[in-house]
């Protein structure tokens, strides 16, 4: 009986592990292909189909870093991502707190409008956004781009904060109020620490969104010095011919910060997704 039970348990565990292994390999393989291809030549990418190259060409990375203002684009992307994510966290957490804990006229209607905004894809707004930014003289400025990205990221972030803060015990807020906390103080000292897991989720979602964004930047910016990192990637993608080794090297460099951020926020992201 005991042996039967153990056998069943081991078989089940082995199947689960095998399944997870297959899923993990299928997720990691494209990344490995990207990294190893970044050390190949254009010709060997198409002729030598083995994953690991015969000779590692580190000069691909040198070429990427010295071509097309890669460093400049990298710094631009860090600036845009930092500003947008910071602003979204502040605005969305304040708005989420207000929608969750305060009562004001039209609260539900305004919230529904915000949720409705989630349904509109950004590319559908390009022309009106462009015309608006042009009229405000914000076209071809970092502020114009940052404001557009903030407005694009807010609806989902507000929704996440609001639904999470709905679960915050009323008693916590009451105690803070008895201790003399203002509404802003409750948001800062009670709601924000309580919403830490969702803060991680909002941070990573928006980081990925801004870091990988390119289409809006292309429409808003005329000056290439203001472009984000994704601009450097398209340079290696020709109209007909793509320079795969350099593209893969650039992609590897581009992916690194996102992986670092994910590792930093990993705990919060998992908790945020589970608790939500």
């Amino acid at each position: 009986m005991e042996i039967n039970y153990r056998l069943k348990k081991y078989t089940f565990t082995t199947i689960i592990h095998l399944f997870l292994l297959v899923v993990a390999v299928s997720c990691i393989y494209p990344l490995l292909w990207m990294v190893f291809s970044s050390f190949k030549t254009q010709q060997t990418i198409f002729t030598n189909l083995s994953l690991i190259p015969e000779r590692f060409r580190f000069e691909n990375y040198y070429l990427v870093l010295t071509q097309e203002n890669f460093g400049r684009y990298f710094l631009n992307s860090i600036f845009y991502t930092g500003s947008v994510v910071f602003s979204i966290i502040i605005i969305a957490s304040l708005a989420g707190y207000a929608f969750s804990r305060l009562n004001f006229p039209g609260k539900n209607l305004i919230f529904i409008i915000f949720i409705g905004a989630m349904m509109i894809p950004t590319p559908g707004n390009f022309v009106p956004l462009y015309v608006l930014l042009n009229k405000l003289h914000l076209r071809n400025t970092p502020l114009g781009y940052i404001l557009c990205m903030i407005s694009g990221g807010l609806p989902l972030s507000i929704f996440l904060f609001k639904t999470f803060l709905d679960k915050m015990p009323q008693e916590l807020e009451d105690i803070a109020r008895i201790d003399g906390c203002s509404k802003l103080r409750i948001w800062w000292n009670i709601a924000l620490p309580f919403a830490k897991p969702i803060l991680g989720v909002v941070a990573i979602f928006n980081t990925l969104n801004v870091w990988n964004e390119y289409l809006l930047a292309l429409v808003v910016f005329d000056s290439k010095h203001l472009m984000p990192l994704q601009r450097a990637l398209v340079v290696f993608r020709g109209e007909y011919l793509t320079n795969y080794p350099l593209l893969m090297a650039a992609l590897t460099i581009t992916t690194l910060p996102v992986i670092v951020i994910y590792l930093l926020f990993q705990e919060y992201i998992v908790r945020g997704i589970v608790l939500k």
Binding site: P123, F126, V127, Y130, V131, N134, R139, Y214, L215, L218, V219, D222, K224, V234, V235, R237, E239
Partner: peptide, 22 residues
């Protein structure tokens, strides 16, 4: 010469710029 690629995004930019007179 200002490069805006890929071509689909370029088309969006031209359309938007035409609307904005830019």
């Amino acid at each position: 010469f200002q490069l805006y690629a890929p071509s689909e995004a370029y088309s969006q930019k031209v359309r938007a710029a035409a609307q904005g007179g830019n």
